[in-house]
Amino acid sequence: MSKHAVKDVLDEMTKDDLVAWIRSQPFYRPKRSDVLYIRWQRQSAEVLEEMQKENRALDGLDYKERDRLAGRFNESKDAAEKLRLLELMQPYNKAMQDHIKRSQALDRKSKRVDALYEQIDVERQKERSS
């Protein structure tokens, strides 16, 4: 067996090639629900991969150090020291804020993918009654 994977002929086809080939098939036409399912499957895999990546985004930051700095900030009475500690905490706070924004965007994307799955059932019901 070759070390190189054999390229699937479908990977070699352009979009126009694929559409023309599908339309030339007299016995099989994909239903809208089939197309939606394939789209949902691809998008849900993308969302899962993005979520896993985002869950690892903060792995390199030591939030115990941030908590230690915050404790020192709370104990300090010196305004200059408080400002210096705030500056030291800023990268941690920004990283967390950015993480929250990305997580919220992923949540919205996930809800759109979920809605796509629900649309598959709607289309299947329409196809059965046609």
Rank of each mutant, 00 (worst) to 15 (best):
His99Pro: 00
Asp107Val: 08
Asp98Pro: 04
Phe73Gly: 00
Asp78Pro: 01
Glu65Tyr: 10
Asp78Ala: 04
Tyr117Asn: 11
Gln52Met: 13
Ile100Gln: 09
Phe73Ala: 01
Arg112Glu: 12
Phe73Val: 02
Asn55Trp: 06
Arg66Ile: 03
Arg84Met: 11
Asp62Glu: 07
Lys77Phe: 09
Asp98Leu: 08
Ala80Met: 11
Glu81Asn: 05
Asp98Trp: 05
Gln119Val: 00
Leu58Arg: 01
Gln119Ser: 12
Arg108Lys: 13
Pro91Trp: 05
Glu123Gln: 12
Leu88Lys: 15
Ala105Gln: 11
Ala79Phe: 12
Glu65Arg: 15
Asp98Phe: 06
Arg102Val: 04
Asn55Leu: 08
Lys94Met: 09
Gly71Ser: 13
Val122Met: 05
Gln90Tyr: 12
Asn93Cys: 06
Ser103Met: 08
Pro91Asp: 10
Gln97Asn: 14
Leu83Thr: 15
Leu69Ile: 05
Ala79Glu: 15
His99Arg: 09
Arg72Trp: 06
Lys77Leu: 13
Glu75Asn: 11
Pro91Leu: 03
Gly71Asn: 13
Glu123Lys: 09
Val113Leu: 04
Asp78Asn: 15
Asp62Pro: 00
Asp67Asn: 12
Ala70Cys: 04
Met51Ala: 07
Arg66Asn: 13
Leu69Tyr: 05
Glu75Ile: 07
Leu88Asp: 09
Asp78Tyr: 04
Glu123Asp: 07
Asp98Val: 10
Arg72Thr: 05
Lys53Thr: 12
Met51Trp: 06
Met96Phe: 13
Ala70Ser: 11
Gln52Cys: 05
Gln104Glu: 14
Asn74Trp: 07
Leu61Asn: 03
Lys111Trp: 04
Met51Asn: 07
Arg68Val: 04
Ala95Met: 03
Lys82Asp: 03
Ala79Val: 14
Lys64Asn: 14
Lys111Met: 08
Phe73Ile: 02
Gln104Leu: 09
Tyr63Met: 08
Asp121Val: 05
